[in-house]
Design a protein around this nucleic acid. Structure first.
Lengths: 264, 264
DNA sequence: TAGTGGTCTAGACCACGGC
DNA sequence: CCGTGGTCTAGACCACTAT
């Protein structure tokens, strides 16, 4: 079925890790040594390690042997589809509440990616305000989430405070709700894909890695029109995160079931 | 910043696709031709195409030149955190309602992956009932979702009908709710990772590709204990799917905000 | 300074698709 | 049949780490 050499290597290493031959946190043998042991070329070993990394078994750091993940395939849960609020403002992730920016957030004016322009309702290539920041848990050296926020310039014109560095208590969302005098409605979309080069740098993800991207669109109404006032794209290394939530029942799925009640 | 040859190639091809130089649905030039045009080795071109594929720009089919995706970076939305019901039973995905199995579903008894055993509450290596099926939209030739369902054997012993091929109207969920006389509660977790070899075969995803995996756990209560009665893992090619839902407000995020009301 | 990871080239092989 | 994609080996280079 699968005879490919790199898969044989991957399968063998996976089994060894599951069996505890290599302790979590420890390094695997170096590339050349594994190549010799399996009798394959070093490049083939590297393909196998790439596969193990995207499955969450090992972490690849530059110029260091592969490291066995603490708890293979276990991930941090980051979203639960609910928005909370504390004295500082809204937050969408209970865990990330204490996280801090790795370096000062940036903001600039430039055109967003096409798919962002499409949902923002601006023309492709048209400038928007882009705020970017890299977040990490206290004590961590690596950035774990790259958050990019896109704001249409017509909104910045109406509400100049959101264009500055200090957006006041509660941040831009509070300013927007005050301005429109209504609650914001959010919608999230989750996607998995290979990392852009920006993400590779910010999150130290290898080119062969995977990122999970949560795209959050903020909407308000004005004169019966639906306006998208912000888009926030948060990307994170896929091996380290999972998105989790409880499933709620549509009316059609109410319990006890109608069929049961009617039955007789 | 990024001088790597394969990224240069990827960036150039991405720009060409965005600019419309290659129409959606059309093939890109062959590997050797691109290699000559960019003055790099064919292997380098291949790395670039892998990257474009995981970003959703192109589709790689075996032994055929890369094909430009119909609408680059656009994905089918499959879940919205709500469960519905029709005359047949529960369903979790409005789009997939009309999908059919590519071949007859299988069922067998074997140990599940460790992480499934852990949430099912069975010992690692202990046998469970595994049902597997590959779903595709009507008319499609490729499987688009691989759904694997894990059921603990103690439940099969109590409720033998769920071990058979024909589980009756409404399927196993209806049988379970009847048996426990209470509604099932579901919980979903979303993860992105590289494909297993089973997924590579079932979904025709290349080894370098990415899959989105939605793991749904079904729980009931008995004697104040929480029992996990089933785990369903549905994996799909990440470039073709997105998970999407509306964000709901926690009490702490009610609107109008208390601060506004108190303020004065 | 020796070893390593990450990338790249050159050349090879095989299975398969289109002609 | 030739061309293609996917994989593999051999050998090279560079930036970096550990010593």
């Amino acid at each position: 079925m699968t005879e490919d050499a790199y898969e044989v290597v991957a399968t063998e290493l996976r089994a060894a890790i599951d069996a505890g031959d290599y302790a979590p946190g420890q390094q695997l043998p170096s590339g050349p040594k594994l190549a010799e042991r399996f009798g394959v070329h070093r490049g083939t070993v590297y393909r196998a390690l790439e596969a193990l990394a995207t499955e969450g078994y090992v972490t690849l750091e530059k110029r260091r042997p592969a490291i066995v993940r603490e708890r293979p395939r276990e991930r941090m849960v980051v979203r639960d589809r609910v928005v909370y609020r504390d004295e500082i403002g809204y937050f969408f992730d209970q865990n990330a509440k204490t996280w801090r920016p790795v370096k000062p957030p940036t903001h600039r004016i430039a055109p967003p990616p096409n798919h962002v322009a499409d949902t923002l309702g601006t023309a492709r290539g048209e400038n928007v305000l882009i705020r970017e920041r890299i977040m990490a848990p206290p004590g961590a050296k690596r950035g774990l989430q790259l958050a990019i926020s896109y704001l249409p310039l017509w909104l910045v014109a109406e509400l100049p405070v959101i264009g500055g560095s200090n957006t006041g208590p509660g941040g831009i969302y509070d300013r927007i709700e005050e301005h429109f005098d209504q609650p914001i409605r959010w919608h999230e979309t989750i996607v998995g894909r290979g990392p852009t080069s920006v993400e590779q740098d910010a999150l130290t993800v290898p080119a062969s890695g995977v990122v999970l991207v949560v795209t959050r669109a903020a909407q308000v109404e004005r004169e019966d029109e639906e306006l998208t006032v912000e888009i926030n794209e948060t990307s994170m290394p896929a091996e380290q995160f999972a998105v989790s939530y409880a499933v709620t029942r549509d009316e059609s799925a109410a319990w006890p079931r109608e069929a049961d009640a009617d039955e007789s």
